[in-house]
Design a protein around this nucleic acid. Structure first.
Lengths: 345, 345
DNA sequence: ACGCTTTCCGGAAACGTTTTAGTGTGGCAG
DNA sequence: CTGCCACACTAAAACGTTTCCGGAAAGCGT
């Protein structure tokens, strides 16, 4: 277990042969290979990663960069853990390991990523929480590190990303509300620079206009994507002139605070105002009335992410269609009672 | 940026000197050091981690192993992300990076850990979700990898761990309920092998007996630590002979389902039965009535974890008290309305 | 017997870094 | 002048692995 040399000596065989045997290379007798494998198992030998990485210039590790800002901590809940399941199921087939790289919240994500890239600790990366213009993308493109962004940025350049189908979700939500007679539909969007908020609101605007409803900027409420933000959204909505009869909440978590503020004001969600949330959360079930929202499989998203990532890695491009992929990930409507409120018209 | 050799050539200096200059070693002229540092910055040179690790047998990386089983995904929510903040703030001072190692849910955690250890990809480890008897601990002890377990096991052997103060929490909860006149107090504990459940129930039993209340095993309800589990717990509690007047829920998340089942039966939490939860969750606020529970700072726990871990690492023992540490982490009671129900007696 | 191919294996170089041992210079005390 | 030391540096070894290259042995057709 000191290294391959010990193993080779123990077998009275050259280390080159041992290495080839272990790595499934040709040019080694099947009989010998069996002996080597057995001995490795018995002595508990596993190749030292540093030595291997140094030699072949590859680490066989994929990094998933996540940010542990207070907001992410409060919101993302099971999101990343859910995605890793699907990721790993694909990566394992190629003997790739996944590690999560949590960016310290007192460090600039861009600097952090630069450090990780320079140290060559991963072969490829998945970045998340993509900003509207995200310097990390230029960095990775320039460094020629294969990567896929979970969430598209708005900066130019061609790179691989996967993003949720905000357009589809916004259209579906607006269509549903309009079909119930609503014309003044508000939307609560996150106030930070995550690109999601902008794309979502754009799609919301287009959907409205498709129904011949003029876009009213005062109906776009920008708040923190948190429970408090939802409360705030409820507060602001109640103060609006020409009160909206429906609202779309981009983060499901907002619904908690939103309901609370409405209840305080004696307004009943689902009866006096129609509410649609966005991403389903397992623990959203408690909400009364149940929230109409959109569901996706985190595991499947992980699988898609892994396959898309492998496609960007030259070493694996034989199995996966090479090139730049831009994928829109669909979600499915989960009807609830929160948008039961219907306007006669 | 091809490597230290390029940098050395560019400076017309030997690579040994460059290395010493960059690493703050003595035997290098201050003038030279400045030149080297400037050139490294300018050319964007960062040492290749594999080369360095290979040479010095150390990776400067700390691993936090987490399990992404379905249960963990549903429950752990922001727990790990919250802890990483504190962890990193300490580790960064020693130029140590933190990575999270998510164990694939189709792989045995013990095997996974063995692989990671053998590959020598981290210098030290934090393991979590400690089992009642946990093979991982023997493995790490035997391999002489510095580690700290988040959660103690019940197997023998001396190793460093940090665990939550279940004894204190159980005693505090029982005392509080007893002082409100309750004598039949149920407890909902997780049905898996996580050691937490056992320790908690033991402490619950001792607390009861301290008040002269006989321990009744039928009041211990073992369910999944999830929302469904809470529903199940509510169901079982309603069926018990000699209905309990109070209950302790080990996972806050259980409260969602528990409330739901009670509501279905027309039983009002806080009025007809006293409920105390365990660990506060940011998104528990929605519960009506608000749940009496226990709070701790995840960030502070992370700091403690990091310092304890460093104490187990020989290379850092100068700054931290060396040796085996066993720490009990306190929590603070957060009074709510869920245990307002008081028995006259 | 000869040449050719195939099969299997050993030797050695290479990856990028840190660290040890050694070298040359100059200053200073004797 | 000689010996000694401190200083700043160079050269080279070492870490553990993979992979390239060459060569021995065996099989096979002529």
């Amino acid at each position: 277990m000191k290294g391959i040399r010990q193993l080779a000596r123990h077998l009275d065989i050259s280390i080159g042969t041992v290495s080839r045997a272990l790595n499934g290379k040709p040019d080694v007798n099947e009989e010998t290979r069996k002996r080597v494998l057995a001995a490795a198992e018995e002595l508990g030998y596993v190749a030292n990663q540093s030595g291997r990485s140094l030699r072949q210039g590859t680490t066989n590790v994929i990094g998933l960069m996540i940010e542990s800002t207070k907001e992410t901590v409060e919101n993302s809940d099971n999101f990343f853990l859910g995605v890793t399941g699907g990721l790993q199921s694909v990566l394992a087939r190629h003997k790739l390991d996944l590690i999560m790289l949590p960016c310290p919240n007192d460090e600039d994500p861009h600097e952090y990523l630069k450090r990780m890239v320079a140290r060559r600790v991963v072969d490829a990366l998945i970045i998340s929480a993509t900003q509207r213009v995200d310097k990390r993308i230029d960095l990775l493109v320039k460094a020629k590190i294969p990567f896929v962004a979970l969430g598209r940025s708005s900066s130019g350049g061609s790179y691989t990303w996967i993003d949720l189908d905000f357009e589809g979700v916004a259209a579906s939500a607006v269509d549903r509300l309009v079909s119930k007679g609503h014309r003044r539909i508000a939307i609560a969007a996150p106030s930070n620079d995550i690109n999601l908020g902008y794309i979502f609101v754009d799609a919301y605007q287009r959907s409205l206009e498709r129904h011949g409803i003029a876009y009213d900027p005062s109906l776009v409420i920008r708040v923190k994507s948190s429970e408090q933000g939802g409360y705030q959204a409820g507060h602001e909505m109640l103060r609006l002139d020409g009160k909206p009869t429906a609202i779309i909440l981009i983060y499901e978590l907002m619904a908690i605070g939103f309901y609370r503020r409405l209840t305080e004001a004696g307004v009943v969600p689902g009866r006096d105002v129609a509410v649609i949330g966005f991403r389903e959360e397992p623990r959203g079930k408690f909400l009364q009335p149940s929230l109409t929202c959109f569901r996706m499989s985190l595991r499947d998203l992980g699988v898609e992410l892994a396959e898309t990532l492998l496609a960007t890695m030259p070493a694996y491009s034989e199995h996966y269609p090479k090139g730049v992929h831009n994928t829109i990930w669909p979600l499915e409507l989960v009807p609830g009672e929160s948008d039961a409120f219907t306007l006669a018209n």
